[in-house]
Simulated assay, not measured.
Amino acid sequence: MYLLMIYFYRFREGMKTLGVLDAIRMHPDAFRPLFFHEPSPLTADVLEQLFEIRLSAEVLPARFNFFFGVLWCISFSEQEGPLQLLVFATGANAIPPLGFSPQPSVDFLHELPLRQGRHLPTANTCINCLRLPVLKKFEDFKETMEFALKNTQGFGQD
């Protein structure tokens, strides 16, 4: 604890040397972005850039586009949609300032025939992986995504 106080004192004295400390005190709002991370709003575009899509030979481009279609649908239908997807896939309610490690990814489930309950998306938040079913109709895919997102506890978060 004592060592931390010494480092803080030295930091403060260094900030005084060039008048930076006085400038921070006079204009705290101008310096806030330098010292505090303020996450940008989550949108479909942000999530599209965030997730690495792992394609395989079994995924047809139309089905691959289902994921992006659902992203856009949940973005416009509910303001919390992108946040629900991020929490579902990673367990985080914001993108960390230094990003995720590992990078969030999307895998497609190709198990046929579909067993009871296996048509729902799943997630492994330890490795930030979202696993999506491969369904024939966009409406079915969208319905399963919405069901999964709305019926997830989200680690006790409100």
Rank of each mutant, 00 (worst) to 15 (best):
A94R: 12
A92S: 06
L130R: 01
G99L: 13
H37D: 13
Q116C: 10
N128G: 03
S40F: 05
G99C: 05
L109M: 14
S77A: 14
A62P: 01
S105E: 08
F138T: 00
F88R: 06
P97M: 11
Q103C: 03
V70D: 02
L60F: 08
V106L: 06
L42I: 09
L50M: 08
G91V: 02
V70M: 13
Y7P: 01
A62I: 07
F51P: 00
P61C: 08
V106F: 04
R25S: 08
T122G: 01
R12F: 08
P61Q: 12
P41K: 12
N65M: 14
D22N: 11
D107G: 05
F67I: 01
R63H: 11
H27I: 04
S101A: 04
L112R: 10
A30C: 11
I127S: 10
M5Y: 07
G19T: 05
F35L: 15
A89K: 01
E78S: 13
P61R: 08
A30R: 12
P121D: 03
V106W: 04
I95T: 03
P133R: 09
Q103S: 03
E52L: 13
E52P: 00
F88E: 07
F138I: 06
M145A: 02
V70G: 01
V70Y: 04
S77M: 10
V134H: 05
F138P: 00
K137E: 15
F141N: 03
R54W: 07
G117K: 10
G91M: 00
N65K: 11
V134E: 10
N65P: 00
F31V: 00
A23E: 07
P104M: 12
G69F: 07
Q116E: 15
G14Q: 04
F8W: 05
Q116P: 03
L120Y: 13
E111D: 15
L132P: 02
V87R: 14
F141T: 02
T43E: 03
P121E: 03
A30S: 11
Q103L: 05
A123Q: 03
V106I: 15
F88S: 03
M5L: 15
V20R: 00
V59P: 00
D107C: 14
T144R: 12
L109D: 15
N128P: 02
G91W: 02
D107S: 13
I74S: 08
R63L: 11
D45E: 14
S101N: 12
Q49P: 02
F67V: 05
I95P: 03
L98D: 09
G69R: 04
P113F: 11
L71I: 05
H119K: 08
E111C: 14
L130E: 02
L60D: 14
C73D: 14
F64Y: 12
R63A: 05
P28H: 09
G19C: 10
I74Y: 06
A148Q: 04
E139P: 01
N93D: 15
D45K: 12
E58S: 10
V134W: 00
P113L: 08
E13S: 07
E78Y: 11
M26Y: 05
T125A: 04
S56L: 09
L132N: 04
L132E: 01
R131W: 01
Q84V: 05
F76S: 06
R32M: 15
P104Q: 10
